[in-house]
Write a protein that binds this DNA or RNA. Structure first.
Lengths: 220, 220
DNA sequence: ATAACTGTACTGGCCGGCCAGTTTTTTGGC
DNA sequence: GCCAAAAAACTGGCCGGCCAGTACAGTTAT
């Protein structure tokens, strides 16, 4: 039997309905991440959530709808964590690098969901009826990222060597890579390597994107 | 019916057996990439390869073995393309950046297999009997990358601001991200954005990793 | 003569969806 | 408060279809 570690996604409503839905969504993210969408059965998800299989179809039209709603919940969670870290300006969070750190910390916090995210990344590349939905989520996340970047870099716009749009794509790609690595990490050593990688990315951004080499320096 | 575009993986043996195996492997990579490993059926793979279902089980013990062999063939292909680009020193390919370009070009050449690679990345994060095999492939690829990096940077080792081991992880992460983006790209516009992202990565590496900021410059 | 290959038929298991029936919660009249 | 009655939430088993794998007798290429 697979380890059943199910961190809760969220606690918004205290109604019976809301609680059940949350438990199902959390279990779904776990099972879909651990076993893959196709391999994980509705019965297993139900068992992991501690409810009956019928209830899954009562709250969600189909297995695919369950996946979509799970994805939606995870993205909501990411946005929430990101806002929480970044918006609470209690530590002078104002520079672009702080925003980057906020995003990274949100991702590390949500590491348990990384395998599920990678699964959806794979599903988004395949030919299936839910691809459009998944792409929309990623597109929305990218727009949020771009907005945050423009906001975070507001006071440093003139120091930027790369336009915000292009910088968004670059950071998106970085975090895609980091997400995959996070999902594959098993040991604490793996994790520290990934943390190193992030710190290197951070340094690259700090040195080149924000602070272009002094103009007196002549490139080869 | 799904589009059946099946670029050949390889043409090494001209024997009937070899030809059949190649066609099956190519079809498998296509179908597993398009539909996912679980969803794609052996019958569909057989049809796409233009052979009978029985032949699949004649050459491969099981569906999982077919996946492993497909993955092995793709990695072989990547190594081959990389060597082809990098080793043929007909254009003064000698610097580390040229090696990076060679790797990138190999990946772009093999873009049709990107969805399959992403699928295996996802499978590698999940709990299933083939994870170990997939991880081994990725581990071997990383070792090859590190070897190439040490070789490519041989004459610039003293200019490096990051140790080769750590640089390897960083580049691995970059290319993981780029691979995911490649797999999701549909339009030529998408592709050009990804190409931009690579060029930005390249510039970051060129400016910071290889050419540290002049020591007179004082960081904040 | 041997290896490669086809086509069909069969099986054993799994799973998504469905539904008839049960339990819990809410509602509203008193 | 209290108690039906209605509504919502929930259960568990059934069904039809799909699919990996097997078996095998016959066909084609080397």
């Amino acid at each position: 039997m697979v380890s059943i570690r199910i961190p809760q996604i969220q606690f918004e409503g205290a109604s019976r309905r809301a609680r059940s839905v949350q438990r199902i969504l959390s279990a779904a993210a776990s099972m879909f991440g651990d076993q893959g969408f196709e391999k994980a059965s509705m019965l297993e998800v139900a068992r992991a959530a501690g409810v009956s299989k019928g209830l899954l179809h009562y709250h969600f039209r189909s297995k695919e709808h369950l996946l979509i709603e799970t994805q939606r919940a995870i993205f909501k969670q990411i946005h929430h964590r990101f806002d929480e870290r970044f918006r609470r300006g209690d530590q002078g969070m104002s520079t672009a690098l702080d925003a980057l750190d906020a995003l990274w910390e949100a991702m590390v916090d949500l590491k348990p969901w990384a395998p599920f995210m990678v699964e959806t990344m794979s599903l988004a590349t395949q030919q299936n009826p839910i691809r459009e939905h998944l792409e929309n989520f990623y597109s929305e996340a990218e727009q949020l990222l771009e907005k945050s970047i423009r906001q975070a870099f507001a006071e440093d716009l003139d120091r930027l060597t790369v336009q915000p749009r292009r910088l968004t794509k670059l950071i998106r790609t970085c975090f895609m890579g980091l997400l995959v690595e996070l999902a594959q990490a098993h040991t604490a050593e793996d994790l520290s390597h990934i943390e190193d990688a992030y710190q290197d990315f951070r340094k690259l951004f700090a040195d080149v994107i924000l602070t272009p080499p002094s103009p007196t320096e002549v490139p080869s």
